[in-house]
Amino acid sequence: MCSICGCGEHETLEHDHHDDHHHHDHGALHAHAADLPVTRMVQIEQNIMAKNQRYADANRQFFAERKLFVINLVSSPGSGKTSLLVKTVEALKAEMPVAVIEGDQQTGLDAERIKATGVAAWQINTGKGCHLDAHAVGHAMDHLPEIKNGVLFIENVGNLVCPAGFDLGEAHKVVVLSTTEGEDKPLKYPDMFHAADLMILNKSDLLPYVDFSVAKAETYAKQVHPGITSLTLSARSGEGLEAWYDWLRAGVARVSA
């Protein structure tokens, strides 16, 4: 409590009366009621994502030093992200170093599927968390063998909402949308499709059996993100996968240059 005016009932920490910045205006002693704290306004301009951004920037620096092309794969649950990843790492592991970080609320099942291909994988369980953050990704790197001049896939928690706002330090967010979902997903979840640079339309082998219009999905995606690129493929049949691998190879070549 302030011994001069006795107003400091709300103050419990140390309280330096010789400090030039001491906020009590003792020139107007007792101008306020003893039970009301003297308050002041502090102007600050701070992004509340600043902490995640610091970790993301550190990750990006770490990836740049190792010339790693880093992809943050996002989608709703069941789009086939992990199946696509299994196919992808099997195809690329012979030509470049590859590693995978898996994010799920629970279980290590996805990391096990990747490890079965012989590629290094680390599983992050977010518990009740709905997204990966840059801090968790930074620590995951401690558990993976050091690789250089290759590609790191981060498979985010299956969720088209929350991961959109969290930079992990990746080069690109890649959103996977499958043909068994609605083609209007880009309009329903615009933040995610706005954040992604590439949209993969997966399960193209099912197109003859579902009412999914590739053209409409692409139109909607370009509405929310005019610069988005789109690839149509099937992780199951292999159709279109070569274009996806070429997109990855081009990215690896860019960061390795």
């Binding site: 400090d19 910045h21 701070q46 509340i48 994502m49 600043a50 995640n52 968390g129 709905c130 706002g165």
Partner: peptide, 28 residues
């Protein structure tokens, strides 16, 4: 699950950092 919980944690952490650097004890 919602990421607003994480955003609130980021907000409150920023506030606690400001309290340390600017020397105030309570936020109203």
């Amino acid at each position: 699950p919602m990421h607003e919980m994480s955003l609130c944690e980021g907000l409150v952490q920023s506030l606690e950092e400001q309290a340390m650097t600017q020397g105030f004890h309570k936020i109203f």
